[in-house]
Amino acid sequence: KELVLALYDYQEKSPREVTMKKGDILTLLNSTNKDWWKVEVNGRQGAVPAAYVKKL
């Protein structure tokens, strides 16, 4: 499985998103959308802005 690093804090704004903190390591589930990537963090799945994460 592919991992990404959170470059910034992000507070979810809808139920389809997830909150992450700078430095979090997230499991990347889907990166086909260039703006929003689906990730899993702390057992929750949701979208985060692609510009806020970097593939490891």
Rank of each mutant, 00 (worst) to 15 (best):
E17P: 05
I25M: 06
I25D: 00
A47G: 08
N30H: 09
A6F: 03
T32K: 10
Q11P: 06
Y10D: 01
L7Y: 04
I25Y: 06
L56P: 03
Y52C: 14
T27P: 12
L28I: 05
S14F: 07
A50W: 01
W37N: 00
Y10T: 01
A51R: 14
A50Y: 03
L26C: 11
Y10M: 00
M20H: 01
L5C: 12
G23N: 06
N33S: 10
N33A: 09
A6L: 04
V4D: 00
D9N: 08
K55V: 13
K34G: 10
D9F: 05
V48F: 01
E17V: 05
D24Y: 04
R16C: 15
D24T: 07
L29V: 12
V18N: 04
N33G: 12
T19V: 04
R16K: 13
A50I: 03
K54I: 14
E2D: 12
Q11M: 13
P49K: 04
Q45E: 13
L7A: 03
T19E: 03
L7W: 03
W36C: 08
Y10C: 04
E2N: 11
L56A: 04
L26Y: 11
W36M: 06
L5D: 01
T19K: 04
K21C: 11
T19F: 06
P49S: 02
V18D: 01
K13N: 10
N33V: 05
V48Q: 00
S31Q: 12
K22P: 03
S31Y: 09
L26R: 00
V18A: 05
L7K: 05
V41H: 15
N42V: 05
L29S: 04
S14T: 12
S14G: 12
A51C: 15
L3S: 08
Y52N: 06
K55P: 11
Q11C: 14
V39E: 01
S14I: 04
R44P: 01
V4R: 00
E40V: 08
Y10N: 01
A51Q: 12
L5H: 04
V53Y: 01
W37Q: 02
K54L: 13
V48P: 00
A47C: 15
K1R: 14
G46A: 06
V4H: 02
G23L: 02
A51K: 13
V53Q: 01
D35C: 13
L26F: 07
R16E: 15
V4L: 11
P15S: 12
L7D: 02
V18Y: 04
T27Q: 10
I25W: 05
Y8F: 14
K21R: 12
A6T: 03
L5I: 15
Y52P: 02
Q45T: 14
K21I: 08
G46E: 04
Y8P: 01
P15C: 13
K13L: 10
A47Q: 14
K13A: 11
T27D: 05
V41M: 14
K55F: 11
D35W: 15
K21M: 10
L56Q: 05
K54E: 13
N42A: 11
A47N: 15
P15E: 12
V18F: 15
W37P: 02
K13C: 12
K1Q: 13
D24G: 03
G43I: 03
L56D: 02
M20S: 00
W37F: 08
L26E: 00
P15Y: 10
K21Q: 10
K13E: 09
L28Y: 02
R44F: 06
A51F: 09
K34M: 10
A51Y: 09
W36K: 03
N33E: 11
V41C: 12
Q11E: 14
V39H: 01
V4E: 02
W37K: 01
V4K: 00
V48R: 00
D9Y: 04
G43R: 03
M20T: 03
A51S: 14
S31C: 13
K34H: 11
S31K: 10
D9E: 06
V18K: 01
V48A: 03
L5M: 14
K54D: 08
Y8G: 05
Q45L: 08
V53I: 08
V4M: 04
V41E: 02
S31F: 06
L29K: 05
L5P: 01
V41L: 15
N42P: 05
Y52V: 07
K54F: 11
K55I: 14
K34R: 12
W36P: 00
P15V: 10
P49H: 03
N33L: 09
N30F: 07
Y10I: 01
V53L: 15
L3E: 07
K22T: 07
R16S: 14
Y10W: 10
N42Q: 09
V18P: 01
T27F: 13
K55Q: 09
T27E: 10
L28Q: 00
A51M: 12
A6D: 01
E40F: 06
L7I: 11
V41F: 15
G23V: 00
D9M: 03
E40M: 09
G23H: 05
E12S: 15
K34D: 13
L29E: 02
G43N: 08
G23S: 02
V4T: 02
L26M: 14
K21E: 06
L29W: 06
P49L: 05
V39K: 00
K1M: 13
T27N: 09
L26D: 01
L29P: 00
P15N: 12
E2K: 10
V48M: 01
V39S: 00
W37R: 01
Y10Q: 01
L29T: 04
T27V: 15
L26Q: 00
V18T: 06
G46T: 04
T27W: 12
K34N: 12
A6K: 00
K13Q: 14
L29G: 01
P15M: 10
Y8S: 09
Q45R: 12
E40R: 05
K55H: 09
E12G: 15
Y8A: 10
P49R: 05
L3A: 06
G43C: 08
E40D: 08
A50V: 07
K55C: 11
K21P: 00
L28W: 01
I25C: 08
G23E: 02
D9Q: 03
Q11L: 13
E40K: 05
